[in-house]
C-alpha cells in the first residue's frame, strides 16, 4: 500500500495539459489535511462549547476569541464549524465507503464474469445514473425519512452505479492480461484473482473515482441538509449550518461566509488531490 502511494508522488508529470501531478497532490493534501485536523479535533475538543448560548455576545464579528464570530444565540461559530465538519466528514466517508465497496464488488463480478447478469445490472445502472443524483437521494429520503444515517444510506445507494461502472471497465480490461491467465492456470481461486491480483491494479482508476465521489457526497449532503431533509438537529453539518446562516445574513454575514468557505476549500482540496492522482495514474496505469 505504501509503495502504491509513493508511486503517485514519484511521477514528475510530463503530460501535455499542464502542471506537475505532485503540485496538485501537495496543495490538495494540505487543504484536506487542515480540514481533517479541524474535523477530527472537533470530535473531542472545541475552543468553546458549540451549543452554549451567551446573550451578551450575540452577532459578534470575527475576533481573536471568536475567529469566525458568533451567531444569534452568541454561540461560537468556529466551534460549530468544527463540529459541523466532523458530521460532514463522517457522512461523506461513510457514503463513499458504501458506494465504493458495493460498486467495486459489483464491478468486479460483472467485469470479470460478464454474461447476462452483467448486461442486466449495467442496464439498471444506466437507468439509475440517468437521474440527477440529488433527485434520487431526495426520493429515497422521501421514503425512509431524514436523519444522519438515512442520508448516508440514500447517498450510498445513489453512488453505487457510478462506482460499479468504472470498476467494471477496469476489471474487464484486466480479464485477459497474461498475469491473470497465469494465475488462473496456477489454480488461484476466483476470489484471490479478483482481490489479490486485480484489485491493486485498478487503483489508478479507483482512487480518483473515490475523490470525485467524496466531493459529490460532501456537496450532495450539504444540499440536502440545506434543504432541511438531510441531517436533523441536534446533528449539524456544514450544509445545515449554511441554511441557518442564511436567515441571519444581514446581522452576521460572516457565519455564511466562513461556513461556505470551509466547504469550498474542502471540495477544492479533494478536487486537486483527484486531479493529481489522475495525472500520475495516467503514466502509471
Amino acid at each position: 500500500m505504501k509503495g502504491l502511494f509513493a508511486r503517485f508522488f514519484r511521477n514528475k508529470d510530463t503530460s501535455s495539459d499542464g502542471g506537475d501531478a505532485r503540485g496538485y497532490l501537495i496543495v490538495g493534501l494540505i487543504l484536506f489535511g487542515l480540514f481533517l485536523l479541524m474535523a477530527v479535533v472537533g470530535l473531542f475538543y472545541t475552543p468553546h462549547s458549540h451549543t452554549a448560548m451567551n446573550a451578551a455576545a450575540k452577532f459578534q464579528p470575527p475576533s481573536l476569541t471568536h475567529p469566525f464570530g458568533t451567531d444569534n444565540f452568541g454561540r461560537d461559530i468556529f466551534s460549530r464549524v468544527m463540529k459541523g465538519s466532523s458530521t460532514t466528514l463522517i457522512i461523506a466517508v461513510a457514503t463513499v465507503a458504501i458506494g465504493a465497496a458495493a460498486g467495486t464488488l459489483i464491478g468486479a463480478l460483472t467485469g470479470y464474469f460478464g454474461g447476462i447478469v452483467d448486461d442486466i445490472l449495467m442496464r439498471v445502472g444506466d437507468a439509475l445514473t440517468a437521474f440527477p443524483s440529488l433527485l434520487m437521494a431526495l426520493v429515497i429520503i422521501g421514503i425512509v425519512g431524514p436523519g444522519k444515517y438515512n442520508v448516508v444510506l440514500a447517498l450510498g445507494i445513489v453512488f453505487i452505479p457510478s462506482f460499479a461502472r468504472i470498476m467494471r471497465t477496469a476489471y474487464a480490461s484486466l480479464r485477459y492480461v497474461n498475469y491473470i491467465t497465469s494465475a488462473r492456470l496456477m489454480g488461484a481461486t476466483n476470489g484471490r484473482i479478483l482481490f489479490r491480483h486485480m484489485l491493486p491494479n485498478t487503483m489508478h482508476v479507483l482512487l480518483p473515482a473515490v475523490t470525485i465521489g467524496f466531493n459529490n457526497a460532501v456537496l450532495a449532503e450539504a444540499s440536502m441538509s440545506f434543504l432541511g431533509i438531510g441531517v436533523t438537529p441536534p446533528d449539524a453539518s456544514l450544509g445545515y449550518m449554511l441554511s441557518e446562516a442564511q436567515s441571519m445574513l444581514v446581522r452576521a454575514p460572516w457565519y455564511a461566509l466562513c461556513t461556505g468557505m470551509v466547504i469550498v476549500l474542502l471540495v477544492f482540496g479533494v478536487g486537486l488531490i483527484g486531479e493529481g492522482l489522475q495525472r500520475s495514474g495516467r503514466e502509471v496505469g
Binding site: 495539459d17 450539504a222 444540499s223 449554511l242 469550498v264 477544492f268 478536487g271 486537486l272
Partner: peptide, 28 residues
C-alpha cells in the same frame, strides 16, 4: 493554453469553480 504554468493555473481555477456549491453562491 494547456501547457506549463498557465495550464496549471487554469486547472486550479476550474477545480475552484467546481468546488463552489450553487447554494453558497446563491447566499453570496
Amino acid at each position: 493554453r494547456a501547457q506549463g504554468a498557465e495550464g496549471a493555473l487554469h486547472t486550479s481555477l476550474i477545480q475552484l469553480a467546481m468546488a463552489v456549491p450553487p447554494f453558497f453562491t446563491g447566499i453570496l
